[in-house]
Design a protein around this nucleic acid. Structure first.
Lengths: 334, 334
DNA sequence: ACCAATTTTGCAACCGGTTGCAAGCAGCTA
DNA sequence: TAGCTGCTTGCAACCGGTTGCAAAATTGGT
């Protein structure tokens, strides 16, 4: 295969400089948007660069500019398809800004320190937590990695002084309660994931407070303990075993994964309980589930998160409104 | 909060050197595993480094060593939960080797050139394609990004001279055919994803050839065109509409996402058709589907892929055996 | 055609590490 | 104690860019 660049290495600014008959500094300027350089030499340089297939080395640039354009994406739960939606959004938006996503997998809890340190060494400009188990301990850790701004996406939390971009969980909870009320139900339940999450508190809070306005309280809170379909199934299964025919008519599950598990358990028992999930994962649309769910405004959330890490002083938490997606699972007759 | 390192910047080797009373080169050596340095000074340096919270700047190291330890992970289909399993495996294994994953999202087809170029500029050491639509065009592109070894994971292909680590799709197809035969079926179908994939040819090939031994041929090949649950549903739905009661008894779907769609369509029509999927995604285990599937040996595949990119000359393609996971969907009576 | 204002360019120094070389400094033998 | 060997260490140079400064070149006004 013919190869213009015979040497077995990438060409550098100096190579281009030689070919274009200018200094390497001029080459650098040619690749700097509003640098002081004549139109003439810029063209000359770009032509030479094109000929050699030259592209600036972003590591070197990062080193001298003290800005890597690498963003660390912290992920801890690779079981939930919802994470994939988030990852898709984040990587796309980053790439459009000429930045790049470095995925930091902390699902193996005991390695999270090591991984975050590693990210720090790679000079990530910022950290974005695509949250599930964002524990206080973890935040603490992130803070000790000084100089790095970070933001939590999609997870309400009551840890103060933290940049959190999330769905307006309270309103969402209310909206869902309202939806179920209009279906004429009178006995309500809720299913939560991990104990330590303050997210479900917000969703639950909205749900509960709306019902309270009609003097209804949430009679059953099923704790799955994890965001895990199997757990959702198991906890609903045992609830139904324990309660026989004396069960709630409608249940709001903290997310779709749990909701799908719950639906299967309900189906297994041949019961009818309305279910509403959260996240609107693709599978919610499967006819087996037809799961009514709440779509988080991922694009806005991610956009906002990027804005925050770019401008650390203007940073502030936000709660953005999402939207209910109606299917069949919330109805009283299916 | 008290802060040992008052200056608002990360401390460098020079800072450590000053504190430890040695030269910055000695500091560098202290952090190089088998460097020539006395036990005494190494300890002195490490102590000082610890005090300042110093960790080597990996970008700078990458620059001088001409090795970034950044691996580009090319992903193009963020709808399939299976990708999350792969990402989990890849990131974990990379992190354990002190490498890091840079996710390159090429799902927006027209931006793939730009993204791959970007990765090149970030000096990725290698590219790993977590494949769905690995087109020839894309490979071509990857090759023009010279100097970078790359490997395709989880996707058979007949493009020659390419490092491909995949499941042994032919054997898998045979195994599945065998399984279905033992259930006593005599009319068989197959559902494929994207037209251009040579993967399904391999799975199909194994399936078909095994059936052929009993003089049975695959009477229906449903082409979904995409790896997409909705498409899987649609294509099965229209097949059943077209064929009334005259349909296949068993169908092997190229992956679980398609299989789940197919199952829903079958259920909608109140028919009984055995279904086998591929990938063994978590949802295959949901009672709504109880999908019999084939588990790819992801950990081995990824481990092998990393081996290949580390040692480009020893590189070679491999096809690793996976394992059938039996549930209910393949049975003749459910 | 001359001079000041402005643009363009080259250079030294730097970002934070690593590497090859040579000098420094043991420790050991004779 | 000189002489040799081998381990440590400091130094200059480099990886591939960027930045501030000052010199060079261009522009424009008269």
């Amino acid at each position: 295969m013919p190869d213009i660049n015979a040497a077995d290495r990438k060409s550098t600014a100096s190579d281009v400089a030689k070919l274009a008959g200018v200094s390497k500094w001029t080459v650098s300027r040619a690749f700097t948007p509003k640098a002081s350089i004549s139109q003439h030499s810029r063209e000359k340089v770009l032509k030479a660069a094109d000929e050699l297939g030259y592209k600036p080395n972003l590591l070197a640039r990062g080193l001298s500019k003290n800005k890597s354009n690498i963003i660390g994406i912290v992920v801890d739960n690779f079981e939930n398809p919802h994470k994939l939606m988030l990852l898709n959004e984040v990587t796309t938006q980053l790439q459009n800004k000429a930045k790049i996503a470095m995925v930091l997998n902390i699902s193996n809890a005991n390695s999270s320190t090591r991984v975050l340190t590693q990210a720090d060494q790679f000079q990530v400009d910022a950290l974005i937590f695509l949250g599930s188990f964002i524990t206080e301990e973890l935040i603490e850790l992130a803070i000790t990695i000084k100089h790095i701004p970070f933001v939590v996406v999609g997870r309400s939390t009551d840890i103060t002084n933290l940049n959190v971009i999330s769905t307006d969980d309270i309103s969402a909870g209310q909206e869902i309660a309202k939806l179920l009320m209009t279906q004429g139900f009178s006995r309500f339940g809720f299913m939560s994931g991990p104990e330590s999450q303050s997210t479900w508190l917000a969703r639950f809070e909205g749900y509960k407070s709306y019902l309270a306005k009609s003097n209804i309280n949430v009679e059953a809170v099923l704790k799955a303990g994890k965001y895990d379909r199997q757990r959702g199934f198991a906890v609903m299964d045992s609830y139904l075993i324990d309660h026989g025919d004396d069960h709630v008519e409608a249940i709001f599950c903290e997310n779709d994964i749990l909701a799908i598990g719950a639906l299967d358990a309900i189906k297994k028992h041949g019961k009818k309980i309305a279910v509403v999930g959260f996240d609107n994962i693709e599978l919610a649309n499967a006819t087996s589930f037809a799961l009514t769910s709440y779509r988080q405004p991922l694009n806005l959330m991610v956009a906002q998160a990027l804005k925050v890490i770019e401008d650390p002083n203007a940073s502030s938490s936000q709660q953005l409104p999402g939207k209910l997606v109606l299917r069949n699972s919330h109805k009283n007759s299916q």
